[in-house]
Design a protein around this nucleic acid. Structure first.
Lengths: 118, 118
DNA sequence: AGGGTACTGTAGACACTCTACAGAATATAT
DNA sequence: ATATATTCTGTAGAGTGTCTACAGTACCCT
């Protein structure tokens, strides 16, 4: 009886980093909030599991693309806020254009076709 | 000095099956030709390595989505021709709509934004 | 005290692509 | 005939990244 069975889609490998970096472009945020933002923005289509989220954040931090500091969240709980570093912005731009190229390539192969000849 | 440095994009996990099934929608074909078709159709953006291709074909066959038979290729070599089964067509439709939903979701999160508020 | 929510985290399974290697069969050239 | 290129199929193993499942802290509310 859930109001919307949202038909979730699994993340394709390599896309989570991009989603996180893109989310942080709007300003610093913490893991829990990042996951919710992605979920909400994608109209509940994408859901990030904690087992993917936190390793990804640590990975991105180790790469120097994001930096962390403990602060207090809106709800008054301790939370690790991440922000984009300059190198992170470059990485975001790179991954975003890679994604666009890939999505375009997929579109080319998947195109309606019918007229295979021509 | 290559005429076009094609800037290849790595395949995202889970997309190869879809590309293969889509290629076979145009008619039976063998591994080597399938890979070339994907590469050409994607304007050289996507390249399928043999280490990905053949395991994928065997996987799809084991699932009953494609069926194989040995025949002779255009060039007169023995080649294993694959064709889409009825179940394969359903699978193709399913994976295609999944991809479209995913691509749309990515677009929602990556959208120009700027106006985060509103 | 009990349950809910917000928040971070780890371990291990699993799936899929990649690089690198290997081999057969045919054609072409020298 | 021997070499070389092309067409075609295949395997082994590494690497990567997502998932499920589990674990724990802290605060709030009744």
């Amino acid at each position: 009886m859930s109001p919307k069975p949202p038909t979730r889609v699994e993340l394709l490998q390599g896309t989570l980093d991009l989603l996180i970096l893109r989310t942080l472009l709007a300003g610093p945020s913490h893991g829990h909030a990042i996951a919710k933002h992605i979920q909400r923005t994608s109209e509940e289509l994408l859901q990030v599991e904690t087992g993917s989220l936190y390793p990804a954040l640590h990975r991105l931090e180790a790469q120097g693309w994001i930096a962390a500091s403990w602060e207090l969240s809106d709800k008054g709980k301790r939370a690790k806020y991440y922000r984009l570093t300059p190198r992170g912005r470059k990485q975001l731009a790179s991954e975003q254009s890679k994604w666009q190229a890939f999505a375009r390539a997929m579109g080319l192969v998947l195109k309606p076709a019918d007229q295979e000849a021509e």
